[in-house]
Simulated assay, not measured.
Amino acid sequence: MGTPPPPPPQSGPGFAGFPQQPQPPAPHGPPGFGPPPGLPSAPGAPTAPAAPNGGRGGGLRRNAVWAFVGAILASAIWTGAVVAVPGIVGGKSAAKSVRGYHAVDRICDAGKLTAFRGKYKMVDNYPLEHAGRSESMDVMRCYALMKRTPGDSETTDYATLDIRAELHKAVDSVPEFAALRHYFEQQKYEITDVPGLGEEAYLAYGDEPTSADKTFHDINHYLQVRDGAMTYSLYWTDNYQVGKNHMLDRETVRKAMLDDTRDMLKAIGGA
């Protein structure tokens, strides 16, 4: 099996305003987001244990690498949205009400992630969580690397979960929210509206090959929610090789995303 290609160069602030996935800190440098030291080819992916009968655990290693790479690739989406829909970062408009939402220091801890924790086990030291507060915007972010060993399989599947909630107190977030949806549409993602979640919400889904032989695929799920001045993004990614990997089915992932999102929005003051 071939090794997946390295992630493309990054530019711009990242997916939906997410900070880009940082490189591993220099020795004695400050901690930050990104998995702990692991595979040489993808810093942060868990080190693969030796496979039975002298194997090298290549399937585990590849899954771990791709889970991390999937999160890195997500950081390019915001840059693409800006290019695809000019003018979304220009101009000013009145901010909407935050409707009782408030910033918490650890959004995933507050929201529990009950649905995803029922399917996956967190890799040690995850999730990573940060919050920032300012007069113009409060930001909460959670990043998780998760692992699952399906049935009696000798291969462990890895997935990433990246969550960000923003309280826009200075500008109207509606144009930006609409532009991001337009970007997903331009990239041929399958868009599904989600009624009863905030003022507007949708799921964007993509399944695309990531290697020359077309057998390796990334699965990308995005949930975007806006409620007044609060915007929320949940990005979940997994990968598979056609005919070989086990993975959660699409409906299971969709339900987990919606259930955990509802819990998180309640935890930060939503109805």
Rank of each mutant, 00 (worst) to 15 (best):
C142V: 06
Y143L: 14
Y143E: 13
Y143I: 12
Y143T: 12
A144N: 04
A144Y: 02
A144D: 08
A144K: 01
A144F: 03
L145C: 06
L145Q: 08
M146T: 07
R148N: 11
R148S: 10
R148M: 09
R148F: 04
R148L: 12
P150Y: 02
G151M: 07
G151R: 08
D152K: 15
D152W: 14
S153V: 10
S153M: 08
E154K: 13
E154V: 14
T155H: 08
T155L: 07
T155G: 03
T156L: 06
D157M: 14
Y158T: 03
A159S: 10
T160F: 08
T160Q: 06
T160S: 13
L161P: 00
L161T: 01
L161I: 05
D162E: 10
D162P: 01
R164L: 15
A165K: 01
E166F: 04
E166L: 11
L167F: 05
H168W: 07
K169S: 06
K169Y: 08
K169R: 12
A170Y: 09
S173L: 13
S173G: 09
S173H: 10
S173W: 05
V174M: 09
P175E: 05
P175Q: 05
P175G: 04
E176H: 15
E176T: 14
A178D: 10
A178F: 06
A179C: 08
A179T: 02
L180N: 10
R181Y: 03
R181W: 02
R181D: 02
H182T: 15
Y183S: 04
Y183Q: 06
Y183R: 09
E185R: 14
E185P: 12
Q186L: 14
Q186P: 02
K188Q: 13
K188F: 11
E190D: 15
I191D: 00
D193V: 06
D193K: 08
V194I: 14
P195V: 03
G196S: 01
L197G: 00
L197F: 00
